[in-house]
Computed example of a mutant assay.
Amino acid sequence: MVHMNQGEGDTSYARNCGIQNAEQNRMKPLIEAAVVDLCTSTSLPRNMVITDLGCSSGSNALVLVSVAIEAIKSYCIQLQKNPPEMCVFLNDLPNNDFTMVIKNLVTLRQGNEPFVVTGVTPGSFYERLFTSGSLHLVCSSSSLHWLSKAPEVLTMNHIPAYNIDEHARREMLPMILEAYAQQFRNDFTHFLKLRAKELLSGGRMVISITGRHSDGFSSKLFHIWETIVQILSVMVLEGVIDKAKFDSFYMPMYGPSSEEFRDIIQEEGSFVIKEMLVRDFTSDADSALFAPKMFMCHMRAVFEPIIVQHFGEVMEEFTRTAERQWRVDGILMDQLGRLAWLCVSLTKA
C-alpha cells in the first residue's frame, strides 16, 4: 500500500515536500495556458470540473487546482464575464492522509465561495474514477512514476531488481530494464485510455513525472529509486537487514526517458501533445533542498512506509547509513544529475 508519511510531524510528507512543490511551480505556465485554451476553444462553459490525480497531502495537495482556479478567474475578469461554477476533486490511494486533504479543501472552498465546490475521490488512477465525459482539466504531478505493481516477470521468478553483486547486476540490467519499461508502458497506456473516457471532447491534461533524459542506460542509476536500494544494500553487507529480504524487495516505480514518454502518448492515440518540457531534475529549485540532510528528510517522507512494510522498523539505521554514505562517497549530486523532470500538456483528440 503506497502512501507518503502521514500527519504533520518532523518526518511527515507535509513538512518535507519542497522538491514536489518546485515541480508543481514549473507546471504553472502549462496549466494556465491549458485553462485559456479550454475557455477560448468553445464558448465559456457554465461549469468546469478539475481534478488532481495523486494529490498526496499537505499544502501541495492544493497547488495545481489552485493554479487552475486562479487562471479561470483571471481570464473571466479580463473579459468581464462571470466565472463558471467549478467542481474540484482531489484523488489519491485510500491510505493517503485524507484528513489533511479535506481540511485544505474546506479552506479552498470557503475562499472561493459561492462558485467552487470540492470533493475527494480515493482510488488508484489505474482504474476508472469519474463518469464519462465529465472532466475539463486533469492535472498530476510527481505521481505517474509509481506503477500499479512491480513487474511480475521479476516477482514471480524471484529475480532481484537490484543485485548486490556488481557483475551480476550489470549482466541482468537489460532484462530488468525491459521488465520495468514494459510495466510502465502497460500502466501509462491504460492511464491514458481511462482519462480519455473521463475527459470531455477537447479536455486538457497537464502531467509531470520524474524520469531520465534519454534511452541510454548504464550500470549507474538506471532506477530512479537506485539511491534507496544502494543504501539498503550497504545495510545488507553490514548485517542490519537480511539478504533474502533485500532480494525480494521490488519498488513499484519507474522513470521513463523523454523518448519513451512521448512515444507511448503518440502510440496510444487519444491525446495530442500541445507542449512537452524536459529539464534537469534540480533546475529551478532551491539548492538547499538537495543538501544531503534535507534530501534525506524528503526521501524518508516518501519511502519510509514502503520500506517499513517490507523490512520492519529500520529507518533510523537507514538514515544513519545514508548520511554516512553521502559524506564518504559524495554520490548524491551525481545521481540526481542523471534524473530529468518531464512535463507534458495534452489535448484530448
Rank of each mutant, 00 (worst) to 15 (best):
287 S>I: 08
170 R>T: 11
267 E>S: 09
250 Y>W: 03
210 T>R: 06
136 H>D: 15
155 T>K: 10
121 T>N: 08
14 A>R: 03
108 L>N: 14
70 E>L: 14
250 Y>M: 06
269 G>Y: 06
244 A>R: 09
168 A>M: 13
84 P>D: 10
114 P>D: 12
36 V>C: 12
180 Y>P: 06
218 S>F: 04
100 M>K: 10
99 T>M: 09
66 S>C: 10
55 C>F: 03
331 I>E: 12
271 F>D: 03
211 G>C: 10
152 E>L: 15
51 T>Q: 01
80 Q>K: 07
228 I>F: 01
326 W>R: 06
4 M>L: 10
330 G>Q: 08
14 A>I: 07
154 L>S: 04
52 D>H: 01
138 V>A: 01
125 F>K: 02
15 R>T: 13
294 M>Y: 03
222 F>T: 14
279 R>A: 15
68 A>I: 07
195 R>Q: 07
153 V>E: 11
35 V>L: 05
175 M>G: 05
236 V>W: 05
91 N>G: 01
154 L>G: 07
302 V>S: 07
96 N>G: 06
188 F>I: 09
39 C>Y: 00
273 I>C: 04
252 P>Y: 08
192 L>R: 02
312 G>Q: 12
317 E>P: 00
8 E>F: 10
222 F>M: 14
16 N>M: 08
345 S>K: 05
6 Q>V: 10
14 A>G: 04
287 S>K: 11
53 L>A: 07
256 P>D: 13
138 V>D: 01
165 D>S: 05
133 G>Y: 04
77 I>C: 02
321 T>Y: 00
31 I>Q: 03
266 Q>E: 15
301 A>H: 06
291 A>T: 14
73 K>N: 14
101 V>N: 05
27 M>T: 13
60 N>I: 08
230 Q>I: 10
13 Y>P: 06
25 N>S: 14
259 E>N: 11
87 C>D: 09
234 V>R: 06
343 C>Q: 08
256 P>Y: 11
341 W>R: 02
160 P>I: 10
2 V>D: 06
230 Q>G: 09
182 Q>I: 00
122 P>E: 12
211 G>L: 09
144 L>C: 13
129 L>D: 09
73 K>R: 14
149 K>Q: 15
345 S>V: 01
117 V>W: 00
190 H>Q: 10
326 W>I: 09
288 A>M: 01
318 F>Q: 06
159 I>D: 07
82 N>H: 11
87 C>E: 13
55 C>G: 02
345 S>Y: 00
320 R>T: 07
156 M>D: 11
228 I>V: 15
164 I>F: 05
284 D>E: 15
177 L>K: 12
302 V>Q: 07
115 F>R: 12
93 L>V: 07
320 R>M: 11
40 T>K: 12
136 H>W: 00
285 A>P: 06
61 A>R: 02
319 T>M: 06
31 I>K: 03
6 Q>A: 14
194 L>R: 00
136 H>P: 03
241 I>A: 07
166 E>S: 09
327 R>D: 14
142 S>Y: 14
273 I>V: 15
171 E>D: 12
264 I>V: 15
142 S>P: 02
21 N>C: 10
45 P>W: 05
